[in-house]
Simulated scan of single mutants.
Amino acid sequence: MSILQQASKILDDIIQIRSHIHQHPELSNQEFNTTKLISNFFRDLDIPHTVCESGVGVIGYLQTDGAAKTLAIRADMDALPIIEGTDLTYKSKNNGVMHACGHDMHTAVLLGTAKLLLDNRHLLRCNVKFIFQPAEEIMAGAKDMIAAGALQSPTVDAIIALHTSPDLTIGEIGIRYGAMLAASDALNITVKGAGGHAAHPHKCVDPIVIAGHIITSLQSIISREIPPTDSAVITIGQVMGGEAHNIIPETVTMKGTVRTTTPNIRQQMPEVIERVVKNTAHSMRGDVDIEYTFGCPAVISDTTLLQLFEQVTTELFEHNAIVHMPVPSMGGEDFAFFLEEVPGFMFRIGTGSDNPNSRRALHNHKVEFENEAIYYGIASMANFALSYK
Rank of each mutant, 00 (worst) to 15 (best):
H20Y: 13
K366T: 12
P326L: 00
D185H: 08
K93P: 03
H163K: 11
T314K: 09
P227Y: 05
N371V: 06
E315D: 09
M381A: 04
T70A: 12
K93N: 15
P81H: 04
V51N: 02
S217H: 13
G344T: 09
V97C: 00
E137M: 11
V209L: 13
Q238R: 15
V239K: 09
A7Q: 09
R74N: 14
Q152W: 09
V156D: 02
S223Q: 04
I10M: 11
L37E: 03
I226R: 00
K129F: 08
P207R: 14
P48W: 11
V239D: 10
E26I: 03
E225H: 15
T35V: 03
H282Q: 08
L4R: 07
M180F: 12
T190N: 10
M254D: 04
T262A: 06
H20Q: 12
N355L: 12
V252Q: 02
A67I: 10
H363G: 02
F309G: 04
P263E: 07
H163S: 06
Q5N: 15
K69T: 15
V299S: 07
P201C: 06
A7Y: 09
L118I: 01
G96I: 07
G212H: 09
T313W: 02
V56R: 11
F345A: 01
I378F: 05
L362F: 06
V58L: 11
I374H: 05
T257E: 06
T34C: 04
A382P: 00
V109T: 10
N127P: 01
F317T: 02
A148C: 15
L116R: 09
M77A: 13
I208F: 08
G350N: 00
M330G: 02
A361S: 15
